[in-house]
Design a protein around this nucleic acid. Structure first.
Length: 211
DNA sequence: TAGTGACG
DNA sequence: ACCG
């Protein structure tokens, strides 16, 4: 048994669909994000202890993820306005269907939440687990748009050294099965690598079944 | 708590 | 200075 090889092996539930969405489609997704942020602008959120995130977020779908002095949670409306989150665009549902058709691991997935994170060149996301969802066996599907990112995929403990994975514009990442509970984050953003000229920085769209 | 940095 |  080659221990080094074993240590470097990525979990089978982590599926990286490289260059899955073509540039034209990516631009359509960006148009939908523009519509969403017009209704519900990107906002800087805080941790429970008052710490600042370097990303800015908004949501669409029935539920949206939020963090403030009360902690992490899903809400059915924007806590800053009391308005319901914008509707999940049909185009996003289409991406989910196309993704499911191309992976052997999941047959159905009906997300009720889409967290939209915007990363500028200096944004990072520390290692964390997604565990605010009701059913933690449901996968999480992430779309990357804009600048290239170094994605960290770690273990079940934060102390485990993460492996790095490049996420480019148009890539789709599925965290399911054994990969679902793993610590993960974004180590860095590569400035001016976006294939979409008018997009500076990176958007990630993470689809969850939260409720 | 998905932050940051002080501290050992 | 670097790591956890």
């Amino acid at each position: 048994m080659n221990l080094e090889l074993f240590r470097n092996k990525l979990p089978s539930g982590l599926i990286h669909l490289n260059d899955f969405l073509d540039l034209k489609f990516q631009k359509q997704v960006l148009t939908e994000i523009d519509k969403i942020t017009t209704i519900c602008p990107l906002r800087r959120i805080k941790t429970k202890n008052g710490g600042n995130f370097s990303t800015q977020i908004t949501n669409c779908g029935k539920l949206g993820w939020w963090s403030d002095h009360k902690g992490y949670r899903y809400t059915d409306c924007d806590p800053t306005t009391g308005l319901t989150w914008p509707k999940m665009p049909d185009l996003f549902i289409e991406i989910i269907h196309r993704t499911l058709k191309n992976i052997p691991i999941e047959k159905t997935f009906i997300p009720d939440a889409c967290l939209i994170n915007y990363y500028s060149k200096d944004s990072k996301m520390g290692l964390h687990q997604d565990k605010d969802e009701k059913d933690l066996t449901q996968p999480i599907i992430t779309i990357s748009l804009g600048d290239r990112a170094d994605f960290m995929i770690g273990g079940n403990k934060r102390s485990q050294k993460p492996a790095l994975l490049n996420l480019d514009s148009g890539d789709v990442l599925v965290m399911s099965k054994d990969a679902r509970p793993l610590f993960h984050g974004i180590k860095r953003i590569y400035e001016e690598t976006s294939p979409i000229k008018k997009l500076i920085g990176r958007f990630s769209l993470t689809f969850r079944k939260a409720g």
